[in-house]
Write a protein that binds this DNA or RNA. Structure first.
Length: 831
RNA sequence: GCGGGCGUGGCGUAAUUGGCAACCGCGAUGCGCUUAAAACGCAUUGUCCGAAAGGACGUGCAGGUUCGAGUCCUGCCGCCCGCACCA
């Protein structure tokens, strides 16, 4: 029973040790070879890895090993995204210090990864919670501060009551915290921001210049940046010449259809517009009502639009009409100017509100004759619009902006949905923000020579709120770097997404002590050629890292514009209908899988069961199938080992000259597999299809073996050897241990992964004959074997004379015959 | 509502990108080996008609383009993902 299974345990330990001894995957810059930087998103050391994590590492290792075999100098590093909430929560629950918890997890997970046999350069490993790492992040923070790219402001922010900290917009998903799923509330608080909005245009422009990224990720980023073009202009307040209401619109052409205007309830102008105590009280009541509804209620389906009409009126500058002014919950402070001109004829939200409040509706675009809808947003000619009448919408937009600009009322304006990145976290386990507050000098950055500002160890973590660092007197109380007087340190820490925004650069020279990274190493290795990770980071990490890289470029530290040339977003591993995760309790441990089947089997299954970008349903039976396959390969090679080794001398003669037709067909199968697998890896990441082709080759080998017993077996020994070697080379990147072992047993002293990837031999692929499909009126009626590239006329004649075809032509006239060379003949009849 | 993607056997999937639909695997059924089971091997496995030969049908639905459509176009239906009162 046990004897039937190949000895994967032994083999895997042996080769992991061997690769380590040989330092096989330790790399340094080498300009004589093309470089390939292959990177999987580094993990958060949360405890243990499960088979969900293994998928991404299996993909990365497959690509890295394949590129090795293609002659690339491959950088394939691994490290730890080690700051973050779970460590702090574990500390609060179990009384373990976050550092201890984190490093213990790292040790455990590193051991798990090593036993999977991934080709990492372990010399480059680091954890982001190490002061030698975050020191550089603090330095960059100061540089960003100097350039106005980091700034502090008081604002209304997303607050997670459970994590007790601020969240960036990207970290709120449908009103809930991305990490703990609690409902997010709003809070006014001082905090630090990175000016990602300065890069909105460039981030957007490059979305069209990264063809190696999945379209859906680029689309998500484009939507997130949310560029819209239009105009911003003033509406004078009637009878109050000193007051103007600034509005933004993407449809300046609809100005003549503006029948009222709306302010966000929190808009700062509201207070100056209110007249008398009665109105003030009504406004306060309305605001309170709006604020008390949660984010989730506010964004619920079918929310009614609530509004309050103010006594003040504004003037529509297009036609001079005095129009009513409202405050309403459907206008947001966070976008545009926080105020809008309302055009119910051409905007559905305004239409809803106007209908509800009995406000007039003016149509400014001619509707199609069959139009039955409400607000109209389609194309058409301008009507009821004075000087714009008769123009198309794009023409009218331009003309309206010119008109506003000419009268000094407004300007053309581009708006983005993207907000600046709030990086302050009121938590302990993160990189300290390197600034101080001095009574005399105000906010002062820490001196560079004093970096890193080290996170103190002696902290009390209660989870009660407030930044835990504020309780550490020895940390808070410091001296001002400018005047030497008493100063208080900033107690917020940085969002952990700051660490993951540049770790790929640190891997280029992880031990460099004179800077963030060594310029030469980064210039050699960057950008990352292939990045692999989950879709959940489409607008989080992947946007931040792009931004941060551009900042580093503008600081003169790197030459790259973009960090990741190509991105593969792998799907989730799902079990029992849910994503495999600790909290769902449906995890499968790689340790269990490894002990039962070996790491190679676990990896093979995850690469085979689904295309990489799709979700993968975990299947115990599926993994059995992958295991069966490897056992079959093992048995095949080991049972024929003597003969295969003997064939070695003859391998040089290349079995091309096999005499028998079966031999020729067999060799073609070998080389077609090479071509197929290479295409599948090179073009579209069709790993599952590549494995299917390798399995098929194995089946062909066994069939060939069974058919060619006796004397013929000897004749084909060299061919058989070629087949086995090809199989091992192709399968190597998927299942590195078992293939290395068999490669060695065949008599090779060199590692399989120093071999060149096989190339399909055109001579082997060449055919003398092809099977052509015969169709009558598009239906397959037969097959015909003809010589390759036979003349069309000849093929046509043969087809028309074919016995299988003739009955179908009886009583019908041939209209024409379509001949697709080497593929198909279609006889088209006329009835 | 806007944007993106998907829809193929009992299941996971494949199809040289417009040319034999279902490769590979899982499951199932039968057989062999075995005292037996496991493991392993062989065979069958889209649906319907037929004893067979063979035929008809078949890629969510309805059309279209084409000699030929899983693939391209139009319109529906369904599912998944992202954003969402963004002016």
């Amino acid at each position: 029973m046990a004897a039937e299974r190949y000895p994967f345990g032994e083999i895997e330990a042996k080769w992991q040790a061997r690769w380590e001894e040989r330092r096989q995957f330790r790399v340094s810059p080498d300009t004589s070879r093309p470089k390939f930087y292959c990177l999987e998103m580094f993990p958060y050391p949360s405890g243990r890895i499960h088979m969900g994590h293994v998928r991404v590492y299996a993909i990365g290792d497959l690509l890295a090993r394949y590129k090795w075999m293609r002659g690339f100098n491959v950088l394939h590093p691994m490290g730890w995204d080690a700051f973050g909430m779970p460590a702090e929560n574990a500390a609060i629950e179990n009384g373990v210090h976050p550092a201890i918890w984190t490093y213990e997890n790292i040790d455990y997970m590193r051991a798990q990864l090593r036993k999977l046999g991934i080709s990492y350069d372990w010399d480059r490993e680091f954890a982001t919670c190490d002061p030698s790492y975050y020191k550089w992040e603090q330095l960059i923070f100061i540089r960003m501060l100097e350039r106005g790219l980091a700034y502090r402001k008081r604002s209304t922010v997303n607050w997670c009551p459970s994590c007790q900290t601020v969240l960036a917009n990207e970290q709120v998903e449908a009103g809930r915290c991305w990490r703990c799923d609690s409902e997010v509330t709003r809070r006014d608080i001082d905090g630090w921001f990175f000016k990602i909005t300065d890069y909105a245009e460039e981030l957007l422009a490059w979305c069209d210049r990264l063809p190696g990224w999945p379209e859906r990720v680029m689309t998500m980023q484009r939507n997130w940046i949310g560029k819209s073009e239009g105009a911003e202009f003033d509406l004078p307040v009637a009878g109050r010449p000193e007051l103007k209401l600034r509005v933004f619109t993407t449809r300046p052409d609809t100005g003549f259809g503006m029948t009222y205007a709306v302010l966000a309830p929190e808009h700062p102008l509201v207070d100056s517009l209110v007249r008398g105590e009665g109105e003030r009280a009504a406004v306060e009541r309305f605001r309170a009502e709006v604020l008390k509804q949660s984010e989730i209620e506010r964004t619920a389906e079918d929310r009614p639009k609530r509004g309050l009409r103010l006594q003040a009126r504004v003037v529509n500058p297009f036609n001079g009409a005095e129009i009513p002014l409202f405050i309403a919950d459907y206008v947001l402070t966070t976008y545009g100017t926080g105020a809008i001109m309302a055009v119910p004829g051409e905007d559905q939200r305004d239409w809803d509100f106007a209908t509800q409040h009995g406000l007039p509706i003016i149509e400014t675009v001619e509707r199609p004759a069959d139009w039955t809808g409400e607000a109209y947003t389609g194309d058409g000619v301008k009507i009821n619009s004075g000087f714009l009448d008769g123009l198309t919408i794009p023409e009218a937009k331009r003309r309206a902006i010119d008109w506003l600009v000419g009268r000094g009322l407004g300007v053309a304006k581009v708006n983005y949905r993207l907000r600046d990145w709030g990086i302050s976290r009121q938590r302990y386990w993160g990189a300290p923000i390197p600034v101080l507050y001095c009574e005399a000098c105000g906010m002062v950055p820490e001196k560079e020579e004093n970096l890193p500002v080290v996170l103190p160890n002696d902290v009390q973590l209660s989870g009660k709120g407030g930044s835990p660092l504020a309780q550490v007197a020895s940390f808070v109380n410091a001296t001002c770097p400018r005047c030497g007087g008493p100063a208080r340190r900033e107690t917020d820490t940085m969002d952990t997404f700051v660490e993951s925004s540049w770790y790929f650069l640190r891997y280029c020279s992880p031990h460099y002590e004179r800077g963030m990274f060594e310029r030469g190493a980064a210039d050699y290795w960057m950008p990352v050629d292939q990045y692999i990770g989950g879709i959940e980071h489409a607008v989080l990490h992947l946007l931040y890292a792009r931004f941060y890289t551009k900042v580093l470029r503008d600081l003169g530290l790197t030459k790259v514009d973009e960090p990741f040339t190509a991105l593969l977003s792998q799907g989730m591993v799902v079990k029992d209908g849910a994503k495999m995760s600790k909290s769902k309790g449906n995890v499968v441990s790689p340790d269990t899988i490894r002990e039962k089947y070996g790491a190679d089997t676990g990896r093979l299954f995850e690469l085979f069961a689904a295309p990489p970008e799709k979700d993968l349903e975990w299947s115990d039976q599926g993994i059995e199938g992958s295991f069966r396959f490897l056992n079959r390969v093992w048995r095949f090679v080991t049972t024929h080992l003597d003969e295969l080794r003997r064939a070695r001398a003859r391998a040089g003669a290349r079995a091309a000259h096999t005499v028998t037709p079966e031999g020729k067909a067999f060799r073609r199968a070998i080389h077609e597999t090479i071509r197929k697998v290479t295409n599948d890896l090179e073009r579209d990441f069709h790993f599952n299809a590549a494995i299917a082709a390798i399995m098929e080759l194995t089946n062909t080998m066994q069939a060939f073996e069974a058919a060619a017993d006796g004397a013929a077996a000897d004749e084909h020994a060299a061919l058989r050897r070629e087949a086995v070697e090809t199989l091992l080379l192709l399968l190597g990147p998927f299942c590195p241990h078992v293939t290395e072992e068999l490669w060695e047993r065949l008599g090779h002293a060199e590692s399989l992964f120093t071999q060149r990837w096989p190339e399909a031999d055109p001579a082997a692929l060449a055919r003398d004959e092809v099977t052509v499909v015969l169709q009558v009126d598009g239906k397959v009626r037969g097959r015909l074997v003809v010589e390759v590239d036979a003349a069309e006329g000849r093929v046509q004649d043969l087809a028309l004379a074919d016995e299988r075809i003739r009955p179908w032509l009886r009583g019908r006239a041939v209209d024409r015959v379509v001949v697709v060379p080497n593929r198909l003949v279609n006889v088209v009849t006329r009835s």
